[in-house]
Design a protein around this nucleic acid. Structure first.
Lengths: 354, 354
DNA sequence: CCTTAGCACTCGTATTATCAGAGTGCTAAG
DNA sequence: CTTAGCACTCTGATAATACGAGTGCTAAGG
């Protein structure tokens, strides 16, 4: 069931039209739109075909047609010409991303950029720390039984956590411990470190001296806590969705915001995008999540050193201007990747992970 | 213009009734409600008086009456009997707040508690670090020109920031610097430290050795950055407001969420509450912020060691059940204070701030 | 002087009817 | 295959209507 040229043209025009003014579009309008000398009746025939193929539908017996998720899919995959960003726009994104040194803040800047430019919600799947390198671990004694553990990763990220310890450690024990730890695990990936730690815990503790045990125990706790953490998704600009006419029913909106709050579904969806290469687009119910029924998600992984470490994207109504949104997501992902990469290469020679 | 007993009773009943079902309440309903043998006409006379006093108003010429902001004010100040929390409920809040060691997370748990229980939005003004004590500053060399600065405060809080430095510092310089810094400023309040730092910068640098300068410069940067930071307000449960009938107009809602996003107004409002003692309640436009027109904010400062260090509260529609919300805010503030205080006293003897 | 019954009046809301406009599907002719 | 014509459907706006709830006022009664 290949589309002939005219059907393609009409589908494309219909979607453009629908995206730009949001009303179902009828045969007369569409006939005028083509520029060709073609009558509404003819258009109606073609539209009937498109409807049979499941690409468009009419909300009511007699109002114009509206694209279905499948219609958008065909449109995006085969008909869409994206509208590249101007150099100015690119430079502006770049400026904002490069104006900070702290990876955590850069990431949140990225979602902010996405939501501000698109006027929808920006979302980002934070880097999975398993794939980044271990760089440094420091212990700071806060009080008798509370130790602050600071983990520095090769991408310049810093995490800290206050741990309640089982027994009291002295200042010097902790220093020794961190020295031991840093020299032992230097240059490994976090994933590897975690594995080794697990092993070390299984070997009976006799082989290890007390200091090693200290370090391992404390670090183990830290890694454990890190795994549980579900703050892996950052969202911003949700408020933009309030004024999107598609979401004018408060019930829908509530459902959507609840989904945003738990983040679980978003996380899974973005994980899918990360597994793919390039831009992923989930249209309407394609995502499989009920709350995202009327939403589309445009996402792209961002890479450092040629490896995808996370995904960012935009969540908006299915009726969004893909030609605009796609390049924005694309460019932001690239620039974010290189902004993070820059931090990386800023490391002292010899400390980068192989 | 004092209210006689019957007028008070009627105002109270009217507000209760309005709070519970949201419809303007008329004379017949109210007459029935009293239990007294009183006719609707009599009630109407009283209502007319109350309207003259500005305590109630009718949305339209002929529908029942609704309390005005001023009416709520009188109600809350003189007529309201709060509904204390059950011991179970208190214990539950306590459990959640005490189940964590990290002040940052405890604070965010607090807003979560507020929003979950009240079904409105929870908000918290984070502790003003100026008033807490300085405890420890550590420098960690990340790369040639990037230093991680870790500031530990006496309340157990940890802040870290990556700084790009003007020149390269060696590992040992940094250690010396932090030693110098920690011994010099030990036990001072952050406020004091900041002041001394400012002074130190003004004295011509000749009097200071290089290490001192290092520490001061880096710390100065850190404090500066901290001051600018406007992440002083934490909000949660905004999505609860989506289903509040009062906010069914998307325009209003959008305005509200924008206010939430910038946080500036909330910050000012909560600052007012912190200046007061005990529960503050801002009803409707009393707050002075247009977006909060139809909202009330119930807030209470939380104290550690008898000193208010922040404020938490609930943002909901003016028509909220104050009898429930007030004790929730009150109890949460108290428990949060003591939860944070516990962390404090956990410090090793001699390290607490006088 | 306070209370109350009665009554006319005002609005808001829901229901219904009506009508114009937009669009469709079908048929038959070019 | 295209197109004109036509009957039909459905939406949305507008107006008419009726109804219910509630008010304010007045006048009578305690």
């Amino acid at each position: 069931m290949p589309l002939n040229e005219r059907a393609e043209l009409l589908l494309k025009l219909l979607i453009h039209r629908y995206i730009s003014d949001g009303h179902p579009v009828g045969s007369r309008t569409l006939a005028r739109e083509t520029g060709l000398d073609i009558s509404p009746a003819t258009v109606r025939n073609v539209m009937a075909d498109l409807e049979d193929m499941g690409l468009i539908e009419s909300p009511h017996t007699s109002s114009g047609r509206v694209p279905t998720a499948q219609g958008y899919r065909v449109f995006i995959d085969t008909l869409l010409k994206v509208r590249p960003l101007t150099n100015d726009a690119i430079a502006e994104i770049e400026d904002r991303l490069y104006s900070d040194q702290d990876p955590q803040r850069i990431l949140s800047t990225a979602t902010d950029i996405l939501s501000r430019i698109t006027k929808f919600a920006g979302v980002i799947l934070l880097p999975r720390h398993q794939h980044t390198g271990f760089k440094q671990l420091e212990f700071l004694r806060l009080s008798a039984r509370r130790v602050l553990v600071i983990l520095v990763t090769s991408d310049g990220g810093v995490q800290n956590r206050v741990l309640a310890t089982d027994r009291e450690y002295t200042e010097s024990e902790l220093i020794e411990a961190s020295n031991y730890f840093n020299s032992t695990y230097h240059g490994q990936s976090l994933e590897q470190v975690r594995h080794i730690l697990l092993n070390d815990m299984q070997h009976d503790s006799d082989e290890m001296n007390r200091v090693m045990k200290t370090a391992v125990q404390v670090a183990q706790k830290m890694f454990d806590a890190d795994r549980v953490e579900e703050s892996d998704v950052l969202l911003s600009g949700e408020e933009n969705l309030l004024t999107v006419p598609e979401f004018s029913q408060l019930g829908k909106l509530r459902e959507l915001f609840d989904t945003f709050k738990t983040k679980q579904d978003l996380l899974e969806l973005l994980a899918k995008s990360m597994a793919a290469t390039g831009i992923s687009i989930f249209i309407g119910d394609e995502s499989g999540y009920h709350a995202l029924n009327e939403c589309s998600v445009v996402a792209a992984p961002y890479e450092v050193d040629g490896r995808s470490i996370g995904t960012l994207g935009v969540i908006g109504p299915t009726r969004m201007d893909y030609a605009d949104v796609i390049p924005i997501v694309d460019v932001t992902a690239r620039l974010l990747g290189s902004a993070l990469g820059t931090l990386d290469s800023d490391d002292i020679a010899g400390e980068s992970v192989s």
